Simulated assay, not measured.
Amino acid sequence: MIQIATSPATTTLTITGDLDLAERDQFPEITARVVGLRRQLLVLDMCGVTFMDSTGAAFLISLADAGRRRGGATVLRGCDERDLFVLEVCGALDLFRIDTDHACARDDASA
């Protein structure tokens, strides 16, 4: 599931569950909505992501690229090492700022 929240300068996507081929049908609509909001900063909250494949990575890359073309920035928050590796293998890690200060609020009951 992907939820969109906005403030005057920021769009935040909170992503939970798998970000993969099975979810690709929703990516074009979400991309259009985010691009249409025209905020300078896009925050991708990945704390709830359980799995990301190259299709999910391509979705994140397209969002970051669209923001960069408008002079904006994209921040990855709560992204684990596995997901960072996927983006690195895709050659796209430099499109993102990594929020290294964020600590995800993990639900210990589900861990």
Rank of each mutant, 00 (worst) to 15 (best):
E88I: 02
F27H: 07
I30C: 03
A22N: 12
L41P: 00
L84R: 15
R106D: 12
G56K: 01
G78R: 01
L13D: 02
S62L: 05
I4N: 09
L42S: 08
C79H: 10
F85T: 11
A58G: 12
P28Q: 02
G67S: 13
R106F: 15
S62E: 15
G91P: 14
T31P: 01
I61Y: 06
A103F: 00
L76E: 02
E88D: 15
A73H: 07
S62F: 00
T74Q: 12
A103G: 03
T6V: 14
S62Q: 14
V34N: 01
R106Q: 13
E88F: 03
D107S: 10
D80G: 04
C90D: 09
R70P: 05
D94K: 14
T55Y: 09
L21V: 10
L44F: 06
G67I: 01
A58D: 13
R33V: 06
E81T: 13
L84N: 02
I98G: 02
V35H: 07
T10C: 10
S54M: 11
G17L: 08
I15R: 07
D65R: 03
R39N: 06
A92H: 00
D101Q: 07
A105F: 03
D25L: 12
L60E: 03
R97T: 09
D108H: 14
D53K: 10
S54L: 05
R69T: 14
G36H: 07
S7Q: 08
G91D: 11
D108I: 10
L41Q: 12
E81M: 06
A66C: 07
T14W: 01
F96K: 00
L19I: 07
D45E: 11
L44S: 04
Q40A: 15
I61W: 01
L37Y: 09
G71S: 09
F85I: 11
T12I: 09
Q3V: 13
I15Y: 03
T100R: 09
T12L: 07
I61Q: 03
L63Y: 01
L63C: 03
L63S: 05
L87D: 13
D101T: 03
E23C: 11
A9D: 15
D65V: 04
E88K: 12
T74I: 08
V75R: 10
F96Q: 04
E23H: 11
E81Y: 04
T16E: 15
L84E: 12
A73M: 09
D101G: 12
I2Q: 10
S54W: 01
L42G: 08
